[in-house]
C-alpha cells in the first residue's frame, strides 16, 4: 500500500513537472521544472532499490548537467521564447510523429515491463553487483561507451578551436 501511494505521488510529480517544463516559455523556469523531474526520477530509483543510481542521478543530472544548462541560458541571457513560426502542415506532422514515437515506446517498453513498485531484489542492488556487471559481464560495451564520450569531447573542442 505504502509503495503504491509513493508510486502515485512520485509519478504525479515527475509527469507534472515534465509537462511544466515543456509548456513553460521562460527558459530558466523550464530548466528548474526539469530539475524537479530529475529529482523525482532519482527518488524512483531509491524506491526501486537502486541506491547507487539514486546518488548518481542527483550528482550527474541535477548537480552537473542542469547547472551547465542554467549557466548557458544565463550567459546568453535568453529572453522569453517568442512564438515560433510554424505552418499548419508542420504542426500536424509533429503531432503525428510524436504519437508514432509514443506508440513505439509503449510497444517496446511499456508492454514488456511488470511495472514494479518496489525493489525486485530484496535489499536492492548493491554496488558490488553493479561493479561486477559493468566491469565483468558488460566490460566491452562499457569501455566503448567511454571511448565514444571521449571522442565526442575531443571533437567538440576541435570544432570550437578551428575558427581561431
Amino acid at each position: 500500500m505504502t509503495e503504491w501511494i509513493l508510486f502515485i505521488v512520485l509519478t504525479a510529480v515527475a509527469v507534472g513537472s515534465a509537462l511544466m517544463m515543456v509548456l513553460n516559455r521562460n527558459p530558466v523556469h523550464a530548466a528548474l521544472w526539469l530539475v524537479l523531474t530529475f529529482l523525482a526520477v532519482a527518488v524512483f530509483f531509491l524506491v526501486l532499490g537502486a541506491q547507487f543510481l539514486f546518488a548518481a542521478q542527483i550528482i550527474i543530472y541535477t548537480g552537473a548537467i542542469m547547472v551547465l544548462f542554467l549557466f548557458v541560458v544565463m550567459l546568453l541571457n535568453l529572453e522569453r521564447e517568442r512564438e515560433p513560426i510554424v505552418t499548419g502542415g508542420q504542426r500536424a506532422a509533429a503531432v503525428a510523429l510524436a504519437f508514432a514515437l509514443l506508440a513505439v515506446l509503449v510497444i517496446a517498453i511499456a508492454a514488456r515491463t511488470s511495472f514494479p513498485t518496489m525493489a525486485m531484489v530484496p535489499g536492492g542492488i548493491t554496488l558490488t553487483d553493479l561493479g561486477v556487471a559493468l566491469f565483468d559481464e558488460w566490460l566491452l560495451p562499457f569501455e566503448l561507451a567511454s571511448i565514444l564520450l571521449l571522442v565526442a569531447m575531443i571533437g567538440a573542442i576541435a570544432l570550437a578551436r578551428r575558427r581561431t
Partner: peptide
C-alpha cells in the same frame, strides 16, 4: 559519502 557529494552539487 555519495550523499554528501550529491547535496554539495545541489
Amino acid at each position: 559519502v555519495l550523499w554528501v557529494f550529491a547535496v554539495t552539487t545541489l
